[in-house]
Design a protein around this nucleic acid. Structure first.
Lengths: 136, 136
DNA sequence: TTGTACTGTAATAACATTAATTACAGAATG
DNA sequence: CATTCTGTAATTAATGTTATTACAGTACAA
């Protein structure tokens, strides 16, 4: 995960957590992140699919949290944005005629699963409320 | 870390761990990984700087482990290849006129440090010997 | 009931990162 | 001294990410 999706999503959610239920527009949010509003809307769309935010179309529309910040774990955010494995994968498929090449992907997957488990557990212990309280 | 450096380095080191002290050429290693030999040499150069491998130039040259596989922790490998933060960073600097934008990078850094800590601890508990034994 | 201010989404372009390739100097061996 | 390797720089190709443009659709409010 080398891209900015986790920090951007966390930034969006922190703003929403601090908005006290008021709807925030993608333009406003993009102004705080300093990125394009379309990126914000895409990310909000993803967070909505994950059940973390709700949004309203039309004039005076915008986004708000779908549930209390106390009930959103950082692991939920991670789960919503995760796409590639934590420690990366080689682009090419290793040589199946080599004992190591043949099985390395299996063993890597197992390792990654273990490692990701401790990471997710850690993130599960921190709520969005915890994180956003830091900005007071 | 979305790139292939960790898996490639682990692949290289696994091959070396199983070579029983014999020198392996970058061509041989690249054939197992299925990548370009120059990539292997670059990665070996990095692992050498990290004190994990030794290499010999010239005819019949190649690479070998710099210490016993029991004494190489997966956290050492992670440390040797890590470059960007685990959960990514936004490309642009956030708006300093916003309470969240102003401080988010500090709080992200703190969070990432905590999270990376549990990851590194986990990797510290697994040796290269443990990992490469799986291929027997 | 129409103008305005939003969201949602697709398509494309610009940019950044990563891996592959080419090239070649230098080292060790037989 | 030809051969087989490493080391490294420079370039190109491939891929991934973010920004931009465009526009249909929705809700509000005058």
């Amino acid at each position: 995960m080398n891209n900015g999706r986790f920090p951007i999503s966390l930034h969006i959610l922190t703003l929403l957590a601090r908005a006290g239920g008021n709807l925030l527009s993608s333009d406003f949010i993009a102004g705080s992140i300093n990125c394009n509003p379309v990126i914000v809307r895409k990310e909000i769309s993803n967070l909505r699919n994950a059940g973390l935010v709700e949004s309203k179309e039309g004039k005076n529309g915008g986004a708000t949290l779908a549930k209390a910040a106390e009930n959103i774990m950082l692991s939920d955010i991670y789960g919503a944005v995760r796409q590639s494995s934590l420690l990366g994968n080689s682009r090419n498929t290793p040589n199946p005629d080599c004992a190591v090449g043949r099985d390395i992907n299996t063993h890597l997957e197992n390792l990654y699963a273990e490692v990701e488990d401790v990471l997710v557990n850690k993130l599960h212990g921190i709520t969005l409320a915890d994180f956003s309280r830091q900005f007071d």
